[in-house]
Simulated assay, not measured.
Amino acid sequence: MPQPTGVPPIHVDHLPYATRLQARGLDAVDLVVVHCTELPDLATARAFGEQVRYPGSGTGNSGHWYIDRDGRIVEYVPPERVAHHVRGHNARSVGIELVNRGRWPDWLAVAHQAMDEPYPDAQVEALLALLGHLRATLPALRHIAGHEDLDTERVPASDDPAVTVARKRDPGPLFPWPRVLAGCGLQRIP
């Protein structure tokens, strides 16, 4: 079935447990949370998303959409389901994961806190197209935030427990916030 004009191509590949995630009305979503996978590629992100981390419900951690470096968008969880992507904000938000190494593979090591992989133009353009689509389909959508804006917990470093590091830093210092905010029509949560 062809998509309407202006809708970015979205490849649907729902996680095996997507239908077990809590259902909600689309009017409950007022926030988009931007993440980076902090993994090397989309295949690794998929394998991580398929892992069951909540045995009681048989579900795991995942964003709703993943955008690869070349701009390809894949839907892992439909927006009418509550995905586990950011503590304390899942019920009101959808999550967009950008494939980016971040701090991989030593996320919490003191020496690996630099996030130096830039976001390619194709990926940022796909993000803006997806955000435009979401604004048109999620009636209450008004806000955007980075994962690091909402989860500010600091934890002991994996290689030096005397030092604390940010538990979440994504999408990180190279994420082009000015460009995204200028093009998305959403307000960033401070």
Rank of each mutant, 00 (worst) to 15 (best):
R20T: 10
Q22L: 14
S158E: 14
L31F: 04
D151R: 07
T137I: 04
I144N: 08
V82Y: 00
M1G: 15
A83E: 05
V163A: 11
E75S: 10
G172P: 00
V34K: 05
I73G: 04
T137W: 02
V110T: 05
A18R: 06
V180C: 02
T164M: 08
G6I: 08
V110L: 06
A122C: 06
F48G: 07
G102H: 07
R167Q: 15
P173Q: 15
P79Q: 11
H64T: 01
M1H: 13
G102E: 08
A136L: 12
G63F: 01
G185H: 07
A114W: 02
V86Y: 11
V165Q: 09
D170W: 05
E148M: 08
Q3W: 07
I96R: 03
W107N: 12
T137R: 09
A83H: 00
D30V: 01
D151K: 03
T164V: 12
S93N: 09
V165K: 08
V180Q: 06
A47F: 03
Y119F: 15
A43M: 12
D13H: 13
P8N: 06
D151W: 06
L181T: 04
G183E: 09
E125F: 02
A47C: 08
P55N: 01
D170I: 07
E148V: 08
D121M: 06
G185N: 08
T5D: 14
H143G: 10
V165F: 06
M115T: 05
H84Q: 15
G56K: 13
H143T: 12
H84L: 15
A111G: 11
Q113Y: 01
C36K: 11
P118H: 03
D27H: 14
G25R: 14
G56L: 13
V29T: 14
L26F: 10
H85C: 08
A83P: 02
E80R: 12
R167M: 13
Q22G: 10
H11A: 09
A111R: 13
R142I: 04
P78Y: 07
W107P: 01
W107L: 15
L130G: 00
V77A: 02
H85T: 11
V34D: 04
P118A: 03
R101V: 14
V52H: 00
V124G: 05
E97F: 09
V52W: 00
P9L: 02
A114N: 09
V32P: 03
P139C: 01
P190D: 15
L15K: 06
G95Q: 10
L131R: 02
L186C: 07
A166K: 11
L127V: 04
I73S: 09
R53P: 11
A28D: 15
L134A: 13
C36N: 15
D13G: 05
L181S: 00
L108M: 12
V180D: 05
E97V: 14
E125K: 12
Y66V: 13
I96V: 12
Q113A: 02
A83S: 12
D41Q: 06
R167L: 15
Q187W: 07
A157D: 02
A83F: 00
L127F: 00
A114M: 03
L39I: 00
T164L: 05
P120M: 05
H112T: 14
I67S: 09
A140V: 08
E117L: 04
R103S: 08
P171D: 04
G49F: 08
T152N: 03
V124I: 15
V32T: 06
Q3C: 13
A166I: 07
R188T: 06
P171H: 03
Q51I: 05
H35Y: 11
V7G: 00
R87A: 12
